[in-house]
């Protein structure tokens, strides 16, 4: 028979699990923000402007 844990013990475990999930989400967000920043610099706004102008000229 499995020994029962007290509610407090279970909540402490849950607390730990969720803290780790939230921390990983934060880390993911940082990683993605960093990559996003790098990509932003690679998007050529002039090219976009050219596309718009050319399409409008059709």
């Amino acid at each position: 028979m499995v020994q029962k844990k007290s509610d407090e013990e279970v909540f402490n475990e849950l607390n730990k699990i969720m803290t780790e999930v939230v921390a990983d989400q934060e880390d993911l967000r940082r990683t993605q923000t960093k990559y996003f920043s790098e990509f932003q610099g690679k998007v050529d706004s002039k090219k976009i402007s050219n596309i718009k102008q050319e399409i409008e000229g059709l």
């Binding site: 509610d7 279970v10 909540f11 475990e13």
Partner: peptide
């Protein structure tokens, strides 16, 4: 953890 938890903690 589930089998060791009481009914109250199971909901969480």
């Amino acid at each position: 953890l589930e089998p060791q938890a009481g009914p109250e903690a199971l909901e969480s």
